[in-house]
Amino acid sequence: MCVHTEEAAVLNRGGSRLLVCAVALACLALVGPSAPGGALSGAPLPVKAVKDVVPNRVMTWNLCNPCDASNLDRAAEIARHAPQVVGMQEACARDVDRIRDYLEVFHGLVYHVEYGTVLENWSRCGGAPWNPGGFGQAILSAAPMTDRVNVEYPEGGSEDRGYLAVTTEVGGRSVRVFNTHLAQRRQEEFREGQVRVLAGEVARHDRAVVLGDFNAVPDAPELDPLWALAMDTDPQCRPAPVGACDTTTDWRSKFDYVFLRGIAPVDHRVAATTHSDHDMLYTDLDVT
């Protein structure tokens, strides 16, 4: 009897993870993709590794929650660009587990994962009422991660918010990576305090990458402490308008950033997607 791929991924622990996913892949070949509303879409599935990760590429992506998106499709979107590091926001831990498994089994891309859970929320992430799913940030990295720190901001606004920080490898060099999601739009007073907390920690590092959904446009005053420490990967994006700034959301605002401290951008791209209300922003870096 075939195991549904999403259900199989829940069983992914230890050495059994690859076996379960392999069984799921074989079942998929026999019975085809699931019906609408299931884990899988009708799109053709790759059966071989698509490429290695790009070692100096980092990505930020708000997955959108709640949204009717397949984790298999999310994995395919990430694999298309194959970043070394991916920072996800509005991420359910179970979804991230599945995305990671699909990246490995269907695309040959192997990632480590760290979670920055700020809520245990049944309505956001499902699970049993007595064991709701974890919701918050997550980081995937092709290299191992160390020195994990998960911080919940003192005041989150209408929903708990925080940042996740790890040390990992980008472009062959050790880099401190932060991933955050700030308070919702029209909650500037909360974002101001959150940025102060985040900037205070970023300032401790000579080389850092700060990923996230900041829910604020580049000239929003609450972002000033970060602009004082770092630059955005988009050279046209500054607190004062100096050129065309790429937008990153369905409502055509720039809310998603890759702030760089002690690291130079090489190239960046906003990759449109139908699987979230935020596009993916990724950048290639010169960490030397």
Rank of each mutant, 00 (worst) to 15 (best):
residue 130 W to P: 06
residue 181 H to K: 06
residue 129 P to M: 11
residue 182 L to C: 03
residue 121 N to Q: 04
residue 140 L to F: 14
residue 124 R to G: 11
residue 125 C to E: 07
residue 157 G to L: 00
residue 126 G to R: 09
residue 160 D to Y: 06
residue 134 G to L: 06
residue 140 L to Y: 08
residue 161 R to N: 14
residue 164 L to C: 11
residue 138 A to G: 14
residue 126 G to N: 09
residue 167 T to R: 12
residue 140 L to S: 00
residue 151 V to L: 13
residue 161 R to Y: 14
residue 132 P to Y: 00
residue 176 R to D: 05
residue 146 T to G: 09
residue 162 G to E: 11
residue 184 Q to S: 15
residue 167 T to E: 14
residue 152 E to I: 15
residue 136 G to Y: 07
residue 171 G to S: 07
residue 179 N to S: 12
residue 130 W to H: 10
residue 155 E to P: 02
residue 182 L to K: 04
residue 160 D to M: 10
residue 124 R to M: 11
residue 161 R to S: 14
residue 184 Q to T: 13
residue 141 S to Q: 08
residue 156 G to C: 09
residue 169 E to S: 09
residue 138 A to S: 15
residue 125 C to M: 05
residue 153 Y to P: 03
residue 141 S to P: 05
residue 125 C to S: 10
residue 178 F to T: 01
residue 126 G to S: 10
residue 129 P to G: 10
residue 136 G to T: 08
residue 177 V to P: 05
residue 142 A to D: 02
residue 164 L to P: 04
residue 150 N to E: 08
residue 181 H to F: 05
residue 139 I to D: 00
residue 175 V to F: 08
residue 123 S to E: 14
residue 166 V to Y: 05
residue 183 A to Q: 06
residue 136 G to Q: 00
residue 171 G to L: 06
residue 170 V to Q: 03
residue 183 A to L: 02
residue 160 D to N: 15
residue 125 C to I: 09
residue 121 N to H: 03
residue 172 G to H: 12
residue 155 E to L: 05
residue 175 V to I: 15
residue 151 V to W: 08
residue 181 H to W: 10
residue 130 W to Q: 12
residue 139 I to E: 01
residue 137 Q to R: 01
residue 127 G to M: 04
